[in-house]
Design a protein around this nucleic acid. Structure first.
Lengths: 148, 148
DNA sequence: TTGCACCCTGTACCCGGGTACAGGCTTACC
DNA sequence: GGTAAGCCTGTACCCGGGTACAGGGTGCAA
């Protein structure tokens, strides 16, 4: 209903006031208007917008991607650009890949713990070490070669 | 056997030569000696050291933590500081937490996809939206409230 | 009208993990 | 001894996502 001052919006959304200016700078959240003196005035919906931004960020979208997503809905379905469902599906695939990758890392750490390795450099030179030095270099690898 | 020049080490380990200087700057990898003219000379074991660094990095350790880990093995088990197994166990817990967290995110994305949401801002205001705006803000949350 | 809280702008800095560039020296080979 | 590749140093820049600070203007209530 009543417009919000930047400090009120920041409080309501739980962010730093400077963050609002930052979001404005990168084109993510523009105040509805200004007072005569130049103070920003935000519509109450800005609180929702900020929550959406924070939720999307948490889902793994970058601020750039979020700006895109918000624009998609706001103006122009000019098409030939992927919509929200397509982007969410792509992000889902990314997240799943990341989970798999972390699974490999978790298993590797477990093996290192089981092996009772206590000196990285010494261990690295002995056969039987569970740390796959060459493999780990490029991610997305699921084999578990023997090493230290 | 023979000492390595910085370029040779960089090639052998698959890193940028500048990265070696960077690692030296942060105390992670110091050349064994220098030529009379001031060129760096690395022992052949430096290749292994670099591979260890890259593997540890991939396991989720920061360069700071890695420097600590390498020092632990190299000189002084002065004790009262956690050793490699303790740190690996802590890192394992971190990785598992991260996996769980990403699991929540994956499920949320799936729900958003199932709901066929195609406009973030509009969706956020309707009941029944699967995006948990308030919950997602602080991580480590496993509940799935109804929302957009 | 005075006082204070709040807000404005521009600019600089933080984190981690590097990368790039300029200007000059060394090393190696022919 | 010439020449090219390689190395040295210092400094500055990149990414993303903010945060901080200085110096000055506004908004509102008493």
């Amino acid at each position: 209903m009543t417009a919000l001052r930047s400090g009120q919006l920041a409080d309501a959304a739980g962010v730093n006031p400077q963050t609002l200016r930052y979001y404005e700078r990168i084109g993510l959240l523009t105040p509805a208007e200004r007072t005569l003196g130049g103070h920003r005035l935000y519509a109450p919906e800005a609180v929702t917008a900020l929550r959406v931004i924070k939720a999307a960020q948490r889902l793994g979208f970058s601020l750039d991607e979020i700006a895109d997503l918000l624009d998609l809905g706001a103006h122009r379905h000019g098409r030939r650009e992927p919509g929200l469902p397509e982007r969410a599906a792509a992000k889902l695939a990314e997240v799943e890949a990341k989970i798999d990758d972390l699974g490999v890392i978790r298993d590797t750490l477990r093996r290192a713990l089981d092996a009772g390795c206590d000196d990285l450099l010494a261990c690295a030179q002995r056969p039987g070490c569970p740390l796959p030095f060459t493999d780990l270099a490029d991610e997305g690898n699921t084999r578990g070669d023997v090493c230290c």
